[in-house]
Lab assay of single mutants.
Amino acid sequence: WVPTKREEKYGVAFYNYDARGADELSLQIGDTVHILETYEGWYRGYTLRKKSKKGIFPASYIHLKE
């Protein structure tokens, strides 16, 4: 896992994603996520609506905010 280059990196989910394991994070369309790390097509972070739950999710489900 590699920390993100920018201190504040955010994105928005444009697909729903159902977590398949305890380390994964479920997403709903429109969720804003804070991205902490990246690795081979995956991000690690949390949604702003539930900051206490961190997990991994596919990068392809996220539109990055500039």
Rank of each mutant, 00 (worst) to 15 (best):
S52T: 11
N16T: 08
K51R: 11
G30Y: 03
E7Q: 11
Y46K: 03
A19R: 01
G41P: 00
S52M: 10
Y46G: 02
G55C: 07
A22R: 09
L27S: 02
A13C: 12
T32L: 15
Y15C: 15
W42D: 00
L36E: 08
D31C: 07
Q28W: 07
K51T: 12
R44E: 04
H63G: 07
K9T: 10
T32R: 13
K51M: 09
S60F: 07
K5L: 11
I35T: 01
H63S: 09
D31E: 08
G45W: 06
I35W: 01
S52N: 13
W42N: 00
L27Q: 01
E24V: 03
E8Q: 12
Y15F: 12
L27F: 05
V12W: 08
Y43R: 00
V2C: 12
G55N: 00
T38L: 08
P58Y: 06
K53N: 09
E66T: 14
I56S: 04
G55E: 01
T4M: 10
L64R: 04
Y61V: 15
F57K: 02
E24W: 05
F57D: 01
K5R: 13
F57A: 01
G41T: 06
P58F: 08
A13D: 01
L25D: 03
Q28C: 12
K9M: 14
P3A: 06
Y17A: 01
Y10D: 03
P58Q: 03
T38P: 01
R6S: 12
G21T: 14
E8A: 12
L25F: 01
G21A: 11
Y61E: 02
H63E: 11
L48E: 09
D23W: 11
G55Y: 03
K53P: 04
D18I: 14
I56T: 06
Y15A: 15
A19L: 03
A22M: 09
D23Y: 07
K5T: 13
H34L: 14
Y17H: 02
H34K: 13
R44F: 15
K5V: 09
Y46S: 04
A59Q: 09
T32G: 07
V12S: 02
G55W: 02
K50T: 11
I62D: 02
G21R: 09
L36S: 05
W42I: 01
Y15T: 13
T47E: 07
G41Q: 06
G41F: 05
T47M: 11
T4Y: 08
G55M: 03
P58D: 02
D18C: 13
L36N: 04
K50Q: 14
Y10K: 04
Y39R: 15
E40Q: 13
Y61H: 15
I29M: 07
P3F: 04
S60G: 08
Y46H: 14
F57H: 03
E37H: 07
R49W: 11
E24C: 07
S52D: 14
E8W: 11
R49M: 10
K54E: 09
A13V: 13
W1Q: 07
K65L: 15
K5N: 14
Y15M: 15
R20S: 07
G11F: 04
L64C: 09
F14R: 15
P58M: 05
